[in-house]
């Protein structure tokens, strides 16, 4: 953390932390505008923008029509020409309607123009399952965007990082995509007041341990920590790394941990195949850390299916704490 003014630390929710970051940005910089569906008087589908419209007015907290492709494109155009838009997708699933502007335009304009311009746009994506919203409102699509050069993709897991990464995203001259797990919005944590940034591209070691490394993203960080706590009683010390950014990946932190523990477990909610765990595993396998591995790498990810509606099925298709405990125990005890 780059604390500049943040001396006063309070407990606030993840959603409040994001709102606070936007509030700071709106107050500091006239070029910052918020755009999205129902982010004004409604306060956003997840009440993240809340009452900001009362403070900054509808010219700066803009409700868009239900037009994701157009809306994202307007944000890209505005970013290209002097504004600093923060575009909220109502659900990350709707990024699929705006892929053209994100993937073909935002990510590539600077490159295609030989570096003549930048696109300092920030996009926010409420993601993940667990709310009973079924297959079209519960996906974790961050790896889709993580595949695109030109974008930066972050997944804050704590209120502190949610605020710090948003402010860092705004300071970044290029497009930054922020995936926010919906179940984290109400989670509370210690957050410094005032402006600070959390570096993009830097993972955080949330818990030190010597027996295995668990690399997790977003809500899985909390599940991994819970699992690590339970494993403590069995004498298994898991190191838990919160990846925080999936593009660019923090190679150093992950490799250093694997060299130390010799075992790697990747945990993420998105569909396992071709997900972030595959990339982290390959990164280790392609490096000198490979020589330190004492066991095959293990990945826990979402099942090969859309997210079902029924609450028991919904839980069954994404990794849960007992799954992590079991996988970690197996790895630590050399049963893999």
């Amino acid at each position: 953390m780059n604390a500049q003014a943040g001396i006063d630390v309070r407990e606030i929710s993840y959603a409040q932390a994001i709102r606070e970051a936007m509030d700071i940005a709106l107050a500091e910089d006239d070029r910052v505008i918020l755009m999205g569906e129902d982010i004004g008087v409604y306060g956003g589908a997840f009440q993240v923008t809340g009452d900001l419209v009362d403070k900054y007015g509808t010219d700066r907290v803009m409700d868009t029509p239900i037009s994701e492709l157009g809306g994202a494109g307007v944000a890209v155009g505005a970013a290209l020409t002097g504004l600093r838009p923060i575009f909220e997708f109502q659900f990350s699933d709707f990024a699929t309607l705006a892929m053209e502007q994100i993937v073909n335009q935002a990510a590539k304009v600077r490159y295609m123009l030989g570096g003549a311009v930048s696109v300092p746009v920030v996009m926010r994506f409420p993601a993940g399952s667990g709310t009973g919203a079924a297959a079209q409102h519960s996906q974790s699509l961050e790896a889709w965007l993580g595949h695109v050069p030109g974008l930066k993709v972050v997944q804050p897991a704590t209120p502190e990082d949610a605020k710090g990464l948003l402010l860092a995203a705004l300071d970044d001259p290029d497009p930054v995509m922020i995936f926010e797990h919906k179940l984290l919005y109400k989670m509370k944590g210690q957050v410094p007041s005032g402006r600070y940034t959390t570096p993009i591209g830097k993972a955080a070691v949330r818990r030190e341990g010597s027996h295995l490394t668990i690399v997790a993203t977003a809500i899985m960080v909390h599940k991994a920590l819970e699992a690590a706590k339970a494993l403590e009683d069995e004498g298994i010390e898991a190191e838990v790394i919160d990846l925080r950014t999936i593009r660019p990946l923090d190679r150093d932190t992950v490799l250093a941990s694997v060299r130390k523990t010799g075992k790697l477990l990747c945990v993420y909610e998105a569909v396992k195949t071709l997900g972030i765990g595959a990339e982290v595993s390959a990164m280790v396998a392609e490096s000198d850390a490979f020589d330190f591995l004492d066991a095959p790498i293990v990945r826990l990810g979402g099942a090969e299916s859309p997210i079902p509606y029924n609450p028991e099925l919904e839980k069954a298709v994404v990794p849960q704490v007992p799954d992590i405990i079991e996988a970690a125990r197996g790895l630590a005890e050399g049963r893999v």
Partner: peptide, 26 residues
């Protein structure tokens, strides 16, 4: 939908209802 879809994805293909949709305009 055998519990897989919920309110937002109900369809009744036999009666010609190709389905509700979670995507506006979908």
């Amino acid at each position: 939908c055998r519990g897989r879809g919920g309110s937002m994805h109900i369809a009744d293909v036999e009666k010609g209802n190709l389905g509700a949709n979670g995507i506006v305009g979908g």
